[in-house]
C-alpha cells in the first residue's frame, strides 16, 4: 500500500493519492473542498484527468456519498486560455 500512497493523482499540481486520502479522511469533505485544500484539479488541464479519481476517493472515504451526489462544479474557462484571448485581443 505504501507505493500507492505515492501515486501522483493530479499530474498538473503533483498531488499524491496519500495526500488526497489523508485530507479527505481528516476533513470528511466534498470533492470541491478536497480540490481547494490540495489544489488537485486546479492545474493546466482543468481537472480533466483527475476529476474522476477525485470523485472516487471521496466516494470511498465518505460511505454515504455516491457519484450521483457529486455535482463537482465546472467553471469557465474550460480550456487553458491566455488573458489576451479572454480580453478578446487576438492580434
Amino acid at each position: 500500500m505504501n507505493s500507492n500512497e505515492a501515486i501522483v493523482v493530479c499530474r498538473c499540481e503533483e498531488v499524491t493519492y496519500g495526500q488526497l486520502r489523508t485530507t479527505a479522511e481528516e476533513y470528511q469533505c466534498t470533492a470541491r473542498e478536497l480540490k481547494l485544500r490540495t489544489r488537485a484539479g486546479m492545474g493546466f488541464c482543468g481537472g480533466r484527468t483527475c476529476r474522476i479519481p477525485l470523485d472516487r476517493i471521496i466516494i470511498d472515504v465518505l460511505s454515504n456519498v455516491s457519484r450521483s451526489d457529486i455535482p463537482l462544479k465546472y467553471q469557465p474557462p474550460v480550456r487553458p486560455v491566455s488573458f489576451g484571448t479572454v480580453g478578446e485581443k487576438n492580434d
Binding site: P76, R79, V86
Partner: peptide
C-alpha cells in the same frame, strides 16, 4: 480552435473560442 466558455445572452448563444467570441 478551442471553446472555453458557452453562455446565452437574450436570444443568442455566445461561444467563446481561442479565435474570439
Amino acid at each position: 480552435v478551442s471553446v472555453y466558455n458557452l453562455e446565452k445572452d437574450d436570444d443568442l448563444w455566445n461561444v467563446h473560442t481561442s479565435i474570439g467570441t
